[in-house]
Simulated scan of single mutants.
Amino acid sequence: MNTDSVFVERALINGDWTPFDLDTVKMLMTIFDVDRSGTIGFNEFAGLWKYIKDWQNVFKHFDRDRSGSIDGGELREALAQFGYNLSPQLLELLQKKYANQAATGRGPAPGISFDRFVRACVVVKQLSESFQKLDSDRDGWIQINYDQFMQTVLSLP
């Protein structure tokens, strides 16, 4: 981990004062390192900060029970409003993948914390966009070989 990721990780705190998940920090740095220098400059960080503030409003909107985390129903509603109508099986898989670690003491509440919610939504968006690029006839099915699939998935930030 470089010093920029340490700085960004320390600057980004969830609503419960827990630090951002390192994988989320890395994903955000990849998105906002627009000059691909491997570091986040002031202007890039300013863009990242605005992005986080916008996502905080989205999170508050969908955290209907004000628990500080997103449960399965709230996740389903959020993704549906973003235009992603995932099957119950995919929603359950997504919820399990991004769920907070076991809540203990001052740790995060059960469900999906703010930082992991952002990451889950961004990943769904990136995967959906990648799929749509490969679904040339827009029928919901793609015919690709293993190399094409791996190139698509591994090229995601």
Rank of each mutant, 00 (worst) to 15 (best):
S155C: 09
Q148W: 00
F117L: 08
K96M: 09
S136R: 15
F7D: 03
M1V: 12
D137L: 05
G47R: 12
Q148V: 00
F114A: 09
L12Y: 04
Q56W: 07
D65N: 15
T39L: 06
A120H: 02
L28G: 06
A109E: 09
T3Y: 08
A11L: 09
E129D: 13
N14L: 09
V122R: 13
V8E: 01
D16R: 08
Q95A: 12
S67T: 15
D33I: 06
L79M: 09
V123W: 00
I13N: 04
N145C: 04
G15F: 08
L79V: 07
A78D: 02
A78K: 01
G41I: 01
M29H: 01
L75Q: 06
G111A: 05
S69I: 06
T24S: 14
R64E: 13
F32Q: 04
V25Q: 01
F20I: 04
K97V: 05
A80R: 08
F7R: 14
Q81M: 14
L90I: 05
V8Y: 02
V124W: 02
L94C: 09
K60Q: 11
R116F: 03
Q143G: 06
I142A: 01
L154F: 10
V58P: 00
C121F: 03
D137Y: 02
S37E: 05
G107R: 12
R10K: 14
I52R: 02
Y146A: 01
G68Q: 03
D115I: 07
P19K: 09
S5P: 00
N85M: 13
W49T: 07
C121T: 14
N14Q: 11
L86A: 08
G73M: 08
G107P: 00
H61Q: 13
L75H: 03
F32N: 05
P88D: 11
I52A: 03
G107T: 12
V153I: 15
V153A: 07
L22T: 13
Y51T: 08
M1N: 06
A78G: 10
L86G: 04
S128Q: 04
K50R: 13
Q56L: 10
Q151H: 10
P157Q: 10
W49A: 15
N43F: 13
